[in-house]
């Protein structure tokens, strides 16, 4: 279980990284923290000709708050973001969800941008990005563009990122006044890939429920402030629309059950916070 051979590039600037990526084409892979890519390299599921290491780029290690956005440089590690003292006020959903990402040891190295670029359908950070109506800042040697989360995730491990682009930053909406958030996750063990992960945003006139681990990408749905049977019906319709697949850990039926039951619970969590 050893990686296949590859050339290794460690650019000193983003511009150099983009030039290298443009030259490497589809045979080049980007590595930031490597907590998803390295296992796939070790198993030879991924066999790039060139590996471009973004982890040392200072340009990608900034966290900024401006204009209603929390902008996280792609190479900021999950634990660095989690340790940010103001995170719970800036993005309470992230503060609640990040401890569910892998383990302490993998969060020490795994990056926010890497998790988004990897696009595991069960992953928490992509879920939060969808839940918070965030954006992904993509940059190529030619241009910079911003893709909303809802359009970024296309399928399992598949995103709108073009082969010559890097994820430069990930932008989460800051906590909205009058909004409350909830996060719940059901995994087999602590730190496992979620069977189903759920994020709720509740505002005065709106409920937004986002679900990971059921469809092939994190998916959100917005409702007015439904209650009781109407909410049950909405959750049931959402569960069926998400579909879900059977795997060795859970049935599609079970995943839909979690959408219905934990969906209601996570919405209630947020509502409780909203009206103490």
């Amino acid at each position: 279980m050893k990686p296949a051979p590859f050339d290794y590039l460690r650019p000193a600037t983003v511009a150099d990284a983009l030039a290298a990526l443009a030259a490497g084409g589809d045979d080049a892979r980007l590595i930031a923290g490597g907590q998803s890519l390295m296992p796939m390299l070790n198993m030879r599921l991924v066999t790039p000709r060139t590996l471009i290491d973004l982890s040392a780029l200072p340009e990608l290690r900034r966290v900024e708050v401006a204009d209603g956005w929390l902008t996280v440089g792609a190479a900021v590690t999950q634990n660095e973001l989690l340790a940010r003292p103001t995170l719970a006020t800036e993005a309470p959903l992230l503060a609640a969800a990040l401890p569910w990402v892998g383990h302490f040891q993998t969060r020490n190295r795994g990056t926010v941008g890497g998790s988004v670029a990897h696009a595991d359908p069960s992953a928490e950070i992509p879920l939060c990005l969808v839940a918070l109506e965030g954006e992904v800042v993509l940059r190529s040697a030619r241009k910079r563009r911003t893709v909303p989360a809802s359009g970024f995730f296309i399928g399992p491990l598949t995103t709108a990122r073009a082969a010559d682009e890097i994820v430069e930053a990930v932008r989460f909406r800051l906590r909205k006044p009058g909004a409350a958030y909830g996060f719940r996750e059901m995994g087999m063990r602590h730190g496992d890939f979620a069977i189903t992960a759920l994020a709720a945003t509740v505002e005065a006139d709106r409920i937004r429920l986002s679900v990971g681990g059921v469809a092939d990408r994190p998916t959100a749905r917005d409702w007015p402030r439904l209650e009781g049977a109407a909410l049950d019906e909405a959750l049931n319709a959402f569960a069926w629309d998400l579909g879900g697949d059977d795997d060795q850990h859970a049935t599609a039926t079970y995943r839909r059950t979690l959408v219905r039951r934990l969906g209601r619970a996570v919405i209630e969590d947020a509502q409780t916070e909203l009206t103490p």
Binding site: M1, G34, Q35, M38, P39, N42, M43, H103, F104, Q105, T106, N108, R109
Partner: peptide, 20 residues
Amino acid sequence: HGVCGACTVRIDGVAQRACL
């Protein structure tokens, strides 16, 4: 593949998987 933790070392003081 980064799950078992046996290879954890500190790199610049930070605990990380040596196999990853």
